[in-house]
Design a binder for these strands. Structure first.
Lengths: 135, 135
DNA sequence: TCAGTAATGTTATTACATAACGATCATGAC
DNA sequence: GTCATGATCGTTATGTAATAACATTACTGA
């Protein structure tokens, strides 16, 4: 089911994202980070990100054009059925990820009301985290 | 409260988006559409979009890098307190907009659980609309 | 061995968005 | 009126995000 083996570039990108730990990174930031490892072109990063996304090991934050290592608790990314939720702190830039069943149910209900067949949903909440609020 | 008067460019962009009626448009598509009206540079469109966004007359669809005329039922964009939801058909590209209080409540609850202060939230659901499903 | 496929590399290009600066036009205080 | 102020508008250049197109390498199995 895991499409193929994970490649060198995928590993590099995934590690770089995990090192960031809660901080989203743009593709070009990742490229800069990984230049010492031999990466040279954006496409190498984008291909890795695409592959990792398909495995649900990373997520794209649409409102930031940035990427985040998946911190889902549930194994290796069975995100089917519940919507992903991201709490993005506009102060410090950190992002917390949730997989919220209740929100997923609400999304399904909304879709059903309008005969819409959902495939994937994500909610991005912008605001201020506790630390920044305390400041 | 409405910051200032609405300008010529804002009107042009807003009309163009309303003509699209459910179909999101990118900034550069709008620019092409409005060239006959005298618009020449991306910045003219982006400025208008920013101003219209602040008035809650248009929304940005993050996952598409595109913009949509607001179809909220509630006057002129008092979206405070409920999360916006967009159902995006990947088949035909049409988008339906909702302002769902229940989903907004869930977002608030999630935020409260983690001491996060939400400012704005949007959910984008990708899937297939009834028409495309029927084919 | 060699055919097939997945992964990788490289150059060029397209798409999306903003910086920086200057010109124009309305409006109200005097 | 006129002149200062601030909002709007215009243009060039640039920055940032993502993909197209094509060539190459490497793994895998009959």
């Amino acid at each position: 089911m895991a499409k193929t083996k994970i490649g060198r570039n995928e590993n590099l990108v995934l590690e770089a994202l995990r090192d960031a730990s809660g901080a989203p990174r743009t593709a070009y930031q990742l490229l800069e980070t990984l230049r010492p490892e031999g990466l040279k072109a954006p496409l190498q990063v984008y291909r890795a990100l695409k592959s990792l996304s398909e495995r649900h090991l990373v997520h794209r934050l649409e409102s930031l054009n940035a990427y985040l290592a998946c911190s889902c608790t549930h194994g290796e990314g069975e995100e089917d059925g519940h919507a992903l939720v991201f709490a993005i702190c506009d102060g410090c830039g950190t992002v917390r990820e949730f997989a919220d069943p209740a929100l997923g149910e609400r999304v399904k209900a909304l879709a059903a009301e309008t005969a819409f067949t959902p495939r994937f949903a994500a909610t991005e909440i912008h605001g201020t985290c506790a630390d920044c609020r305390a400041g």
